[in-house]
Structure formats: C-alpha cells, structure tokens
Write a protein that binds this DNA or RNA. Structure first.
Lengths: 204, 204
DNA sequence: TTTATATTGACCGATTCGGTTTACAGGAAT
DNA sequence: ATTCCTGTAAACCGAATCGGTCAATATAAA
C-alpha cells in the first residue's frame, strides 16, 4: 500500500476518484479492475501494483472515505449544542457540505450500504456497525431529551428526520448551487414544525 | 417473440419486471442473462427461448415500457387545456401516477437515457429522438404562448420546470404514500409562483 | 401409451475475470 | 557507455463467466 500512498497527491486523487465512481456505479462484483484502470487513466497492472487485490482496494476506499467524513465531522461538530433539533440541523449542515466537497466519497459510502457480495460483506458490516454507534452518539450524546412531550420517542423522531434529510441530500446533486439554500430553508422549516409540535410548551 | 406473448400474463410480468430491474440496476453490458433469469425465477435457457438474444429482449423492453406510458398518457391527456402551466400540471400528474403504477418501467426508461453500450445505443437514440418531439408536442401543441410577458422564453421555462419535477419524481419512491400529496402541493405552489411572475398582468 | 410441448442442466467457443510476469523506457550512479 | 534501479504497461495465465445452443427430461394433452 505504501506504493500508493507515496504517489503525488494529484495522481492518488485521480485513481481514488476513478475507483470510487466505478464501484459506486456498478457495485463490487460488477466492477472489474479494468473498469477502474480505465476510469483512473492507468493500466490494470498498476492497480494491482498499488493495492495488491481488488478487495484490498475496496477496503482501502472504505477506510479512506470514512476518514474523510470523520475529519469533516470532527472539524465542524459542536458538542456544546445540546438541543435535539439544533444538533440535527448542525449535523445535516455537515452532511451537505461534505456532499459538496467530496461527492464521490459520499455516494460510495451510500453504495456500500447496499453491497451484498460475500467477498466484502463482512468488512462492510463491521464498519457499518461501528459507524452506527458513532452516528447515534453524534445525535444523542449530551442532548436534553426531557424537552420532549411525554410519549414522544426521540429515536423515532430521529428516524423520521433521517429519512427526510436523505431524500433532500439525494436531490442535491441534481440542482444548481443556487437551489441548495432553498432546500436548506425548507429543511429548517420542517425542523421548526417538529419542534413546535413535539416539545413541551415551556421549551418553545 | 410469440413464444413469450403467449404466456400467462402473470408470468410475463414476473419476467419483465425481473429484466427491467436487472437492466435498470446495472445497465446493458453489466447485466448478464443469468442475472435476469435468476431475477425472473426462470432458467437462462428460457430467456433465450422467449426472446432470442439479450439485445432483442432489451429492445422489446424499451418498446414495452414506452407503450405502457404512451397508453397512460393517451388515457389521461387532455388536449383542451391550453394554458401553459395548467398543461404542465396535468402532465406532471400523469408522470406521478405512472411512477406509482409502473415504477420499474419508469426507472428503466430513465436508465436507457444514460446507456452507452454500442450494441444498443443506436436503438435508444432513435426511440429517444422520437420521444423528444412527442414530448415537446405534449407540452406545446395548442398552447397560448402570447400570455407570457415579452422577453420570456417558454422553452426556457419548460427546461426549468422539467428539472424541478425530475427532482421531485426521483424523490417519490423514497417517501410514503402520505407524502405524495405534500410534494404535489409544493409543486403546484411553484407553478403558481412562475405563472404570477412570467405572465402578463391581464392573464393572472 | 403416444405425442407434442415446456423447461432445463449441461455444454459450446469466446470473452473477460482477477492476478502475474516480462519487457521496456528513462533517470542515477558507476 | 554501461549498469542498475524504478515506474509502467503489454502480454499472458488459468479460471470464471459471457451469450447462446442443444439434448434430454418433465409435463400434459391425445
């Protein structure tokens, strides 16, 4: 792997982005190393020279993308925000900016969620399990759950909001940059609605 | 092909939907006939028995899906609506209901738009060209273009609206049935906005 | 039981797969 | 000039899979 990490950064990016695009588009099994080589503008032999096997490349990409968004999160995450909905708004903001800066990595990470090939399923499951607990800690740690009305399950609210933001983020690449703000506004309006109806009156 | 069209309808559907799903997911080249057979619950030999070749199957699916949405359109299209925005609202309604009734066909038709394999590119180009003029006739034939303010290009407005509805329709499968109405409302609000700002005052 | 048909598993040559090996181009050191 | 690296790709490998065929079997009508 040092063979690869020693490369000039620009070349690394080209290879990584080529591989990410190929895998995102067709999944693990249906993506051949030749595809990746063509998409990265190098020969097939170089892919093996750099990464050893197709699987090692795939696993490397998973780690690479996760590191990328992890650093994005650590850079912008503000643990001092303890309000449930403010926290959601902040994490959504991080997601959107990550989508703007590293679209290929994000779409690759969503693609691994559906990957079924037994050759990599294990590795994905592990990384996804780890990510799950991390994500829920981002959403819940230090949050004032007592602001909710009785009978309201924050976990359920989280699921709801999650699906909603997913839809919006999927839509993002289809729109020009100008629309992003409008989408954001709509998102915030939705959050406001939920807060108004799910919080106890004294916390509005 | 009569081998296939003579089959009980339910079996035909299963095969068609399996093939549509496979092709939509992985494109022409990356979809093997074995994939389709598994997805349709029959043996690979039967696919060839029914359709002759992989390409014939693909071309048949294109025709099948186009017939499907064409009949949907003819069933619900109202040529007497001459207002530009009313016409758009109507066609969007048709699209959405088609998406609800035949999601696999719709997603297959969007996938052929990006298909690049030379074995089928020609056929797709032909059918797409024919569709283009048809679609523009749906949008423009008999429309009162003089309602627009001077300097407003209806073609441009069409492009704008088209992109907007695309985004919403892509989002559709991600949401529960209850959300569809909300999305529709938002769509109509957008149309209203455009009409208010692009029509001459005497037509508001 | 015979006959016609629906269906498939096994098979074909060709291609492509993941992965290896060899050969070559060019710079550094001798 | 020659040796010796090193980064790179073309050619190659056996195995798997491709699109497609066919002989054989299961099924049902006669």
């Amino acid at each position: 792997m040092e063979k690869f990490t020693g490369l000039p950064e620009e070349k690394q990016s080209k290879i990584i982005n080529g591989a990410l695009a190929s895998f995102s588009l067709n999944g693990y099994k249906k993506t051949s190393v030749s595809d990746i080589a063509v998409s990265a503008g190098i020969s097939k032999a170089m892919v093996f020279h750099y990464f050893g096997t197709k699987k090692e490349l795939y696993v490397y990409l998973i780690g690479y993308c996760i590191n990328l968004i992890m650093s994005q999160i650590q850079e912008r995450f503000d643990r001092s925000i303890t309000d449930f909905f403010d926290r959601i708004t902040m994490t959504a903001g991080i997601k959107i900016s990550a989508m703007e800066k590293h679209p290929a990595s994000l779409s690759f990470l969503s693609s691994i969620y559906f990957e079924q090939d037994p050759e990599v399923k294990q590795e994905i499951k592990a990384v996804l399990a780890a990510g799950e607990s991390f994500r829920s800690s981002l959403a819940y740690d230090g949050i004032d759950l007592h602001k909710f009305k009785e009978g309201v399950d924050p976990q359920l609210v989280m699921k709801l909001v999650q699906r909603y933001t997913e839809g919006h983020i999927n839509e993002l690449p289809n729109h020009a940059a100008l629309d992003v703000e409008a989408i954001n506004n709509e998102f915030q309006a939705c959050i406001r609605l939920l807060r108004n109806n799910l919080y106890k009156e004294e916390y509005l």
